Amino acid sequence: METKPTEISSSKMFGGYNKRFKHFSTTLGCSMNFHIYFPPSSSPSYKFPVLYWLSGLTCTDENFIAKSGAQRAASAEGVALIAPDTSPRGLNVEGEADSWDFGVGAGFYLNATQEKWKNWRMYDYVVKELPKLLSENFPQLETSRASIFGHSMGGHGALTIYLKNLDKYKSVSAFAPICNPVNCPWGQKAFTNYLGSNKADWEEYDATSLVSKNKNVSATILIDQGQDDKFLPDQLFPNKFEEACRSANVALLLRFQPGYDHSYFFIATFIDDHIHHHAQALRL
């Protein structure tokens, strides 16, 4: 089956291009879409560092590209943005679309171990298959210089993937991440279904659990959290992550933003700070 990416749309923006591609994912066993924002370049031989964005529950590869406004800063900084989808699609697994917080649009960036959900391997897709695909098909990208960030479920994905792969990413940041999924309803529902009932398996995908095991985090972790986010009290738990970082001596810049909620209006407001945060790390 053809696994090479096919371009399905292209729009010019801030001198660069938003391009959408589709390909067959051997990891997930289905066709997948992803977006790349290519900044403008004065030299055909220049290779852009890459910044992966992981979206939240219910999102596709399109939300961030259409709503975040990240392209302005990415264009100025010369950083390519990569936005994959949030789960496999079109597999028609029974129950995959029964709720908005599990199944389709809710891959949680893990590798499921339960037979029914065996195609839900977004961790391997983001960490292994997608970077390899990019490196083999887009000579203008320097995939060895990479950073990662995300929102909500995608913030959880960015933090956990970074903490498990410090050699692969120069920096990490997140907007309103699910910091301690083993202790919140979203995480408990997803982990029970995808990973089974063994809580030790859950901790492998919990940023608060993982940060204490990683003594070699050198880059400062940046998190923005809206204070008026309705999910803050029951689902997100940034304070637990902050405590874990303090205990592990990991540098964290956690910023509570008064009046902001969980939406892309919040993300668009602070996105430039995050792009600069990563551009700085990618230049080192």
Results as ranks from 00 to 15, higher is better:
134 L>Q: 00
131 P>D: 07
72 R>M: 09
129 E>K: 01
65 I>K: 10
102 F>Q: 11
123 Y>Q: 11
97 A>M: 11
78 G>V: 12
78 G>K: 11
133 L>V: 14
77 E>V: 07
95 G>D: 08
90 G>F: 11
109 Y>F: 09
134 L>N: 00
119 N>I: 04
125 Y>Q: 11
116 K>H: 14
76 A>Y: 15
92 N>L: 07
117 W>Y: 09
93 V>F: 03
96 E>K: 04
115 E>Q: 14
71 Q>P: 04
147 S>T: 04
138 F>G: 06
114 Q>W: 06
111 N>E: 15
111 N>H: 11
80 A>Q: 10
100 W>H: 02
77 E>P: 07
89 R>G: 11
113 T>N: 05
104 V>S: 00
137 N>Y: 09
93 V>D: 10
90 G>H: 12
143 T>M: 03
127 V>G: 01
110 L>R: 05
105 G>C: 08
116 K>S: 11
90 G>W: 01
89 R>A: 14
100 W>K: 05
67 K>G: 10
87 S>L: 09
122 M>H: 02
75 S>C: 12
86 T>V: 15
135 S>C: 06
123 Y>F: 15
143 T>D: 06
98 D>W: 00
149 F>N: 00
78 G>E: 13
127 V>C: 01
117 W>Q: 00
139 P>L: 05
138 F>Y: 13
104 V>Q: 02
119 N>S: 15
124 D>V: 13
84 P>S: 05
117 W>K: 08
80 A>H: 03
137 N>P: 02
123 Y>H: 15
129 E>P: 01
90 G>A: 14
87 S>M: 12
144 S>Y: 00
77 E>H: 10
136 E>Y: 01
83 A>L: 05
67 K>T: 10
118 K>V: 09
73 A>I: 07
85 D>S: 12
134 L>Y: 03
145 R>G: 12
115 E>T: 15
99 S>N: 14
99 S>C: 14
137 N>K: 05
113 T>F: 10
98 D>H: 03
79 V>N: 08
100 W>M: 05
106 A>C: 04
89 R>C: 10
146 A>L: 08
125 Y>T: 10
70 A>W: 08
123 Y>K: 14
96 E>R: 03
110 L>M: 13
74 A>W: 02
69 G>C: 08
129 E>W: 06
122 M>V: 03
73 A>F: 06
137 N>E: 06
68 S>V: 10
86 T>F: 07
128 K>E: 11
148 I>F: 09
93 V>A: 01
148 I>Q: 05
125 Y>I: 09
83 A>K: 01
70 A>G: 07
92 N>R: 12
66 A>F: 11
98 D>M: 01
135 S>H: 12
145 R>Y: 09
114 Q>F: 08
130 L>Y: 00
108 F>I: 03
98 D>R: 00
97 A>C: 14
150 G>R: 01
136 E>R: 03
82 I>A: 06
129 E>L: 06
88 P>E: 01
108 F>Q: 08
148 I>S: 08
131 P>R: 07
149 F>Y: 04
97 A>Q: 10
141 L>P: 09
125 Y>K: 07
83 A>G: 05
111 N>K: 08
71 Q>V: 05
69 G>D: 06
99 S>P: 09
121 R>Q: 07
73 A>P: 06
135 S>N: 13
148 I>T: 08
116 K>C: 11
72 R>T: 04
106 A>P: 01
142 E>R: 13
91 L>G: 02
132 K>A: 15
98 D>L: 07
